[in-house]
Amino acid sequence: MAATMRVLMMIVMVASVVSVSYAATGTATFYTPPYVPSSCFGFQDNGVMIAAASDAIWDNRAACGRNYRVTCTGPTNQGVPQPCRGSVEVKIVDYCPPGCAGTIDLSQEAFAIIADPNAGKVNIEFDQV
């Protein structure tokens, strides 16, 4: 019985490590309205929980319509107070062209959920949901 419990505990620990390590890391910035037109959906209104994908995830428009959970993990500059507030789920509706300052360019409203907008740019973890 004790051996079974140890095996079960090992499986649970490995499963937790695998799920944590799945998230990719990068940076998030934000852009302001108007949010239409967008590269993916033209003049269709997709609300405000949206984002633009950089080349890191754009994949020749394949990112259009994908949902990502984005979690702030810390400031991009040392010595800056912790800007993080949490996580948000966004839909990719636009393209952030080469030179984009972040991996994911969130709408201003989505960025404000995960971090203090005064930070401008934050480190993130993100994964497709």
Rank of each mutant, 00 (worst) to 15 (best):
M5L: 15
T27F: 12
G79R: 03
Q44R: 12
Q128F: 11
D55A: 14
I124F: 00
C72I: 02
F111D: 01
Q82L: 02
S16L: 10
A2E: 14
V80K: 10
R61Q: 13
P33A: 11
Q78Y: 11
G42S: 09
V17A: 14
P81R: 05
S16M: 11
R69L: 11
K121N: 08
N46G: 07
Y31M: 02
P34N: 06
V48L: 07
Q78A: 15
N118E: 13
F43N: 15
C100A: 09
I50Y: 03
G74F: 01
R6I: 15
L106F: 07
P37G: 12
A115G: 01
G99W: 03
S87C: 01
A112Q: 00
C84M: 07
E89T: 15
T32K: 09
P117T: 10
G102A: 15
A119Q: 00
G102I: 09
P33F: 15
G26I: 00
A51Y: 08
C64V: 05
R85S: 02
D59S: 13
T29I: 09
S107C: 00
V90E: 08
C96K: 04
M49F: 14
E109Y: 03
S19Y: 05
G74W: 05
P83L: 06
G102F: 06
I57W: 00
G120F: 00
P97F: 07
S21L: 15
K121P: 03
S107A: 05
N77L: 13
G47P: 13
A56N: 04
A112N: 04
P37M: 10
I124V: 11
R6F: 15
A51L: 12
L8I: 06
Y31H: 12
F30C: 08
P98K: 11
I114C: 08
F41L: 08
Y22D: 07
G79S: 04
A112D: 09
N123S: 11
S38C: 03
T76E: 08
Y95E: 05
V18F: 10
V7S: 08
G42R: 09
A63Y: 10
A3C: 07
V122A: 00
A24Y: 14
E125M: 03
R85M: 04
I114F: 08
G102H: 04
G86Q: 05
S39P: 02
C84Q: 09
D59L: 12
V90C: 08
A3S: 08
A52V: 00
P34W: 11
P97M: 03
V36T: 15
D127H: 07
F41P: 06
M10P: 06
V12Y: 06
A24C: 01
M9V: 04
I50H: 06
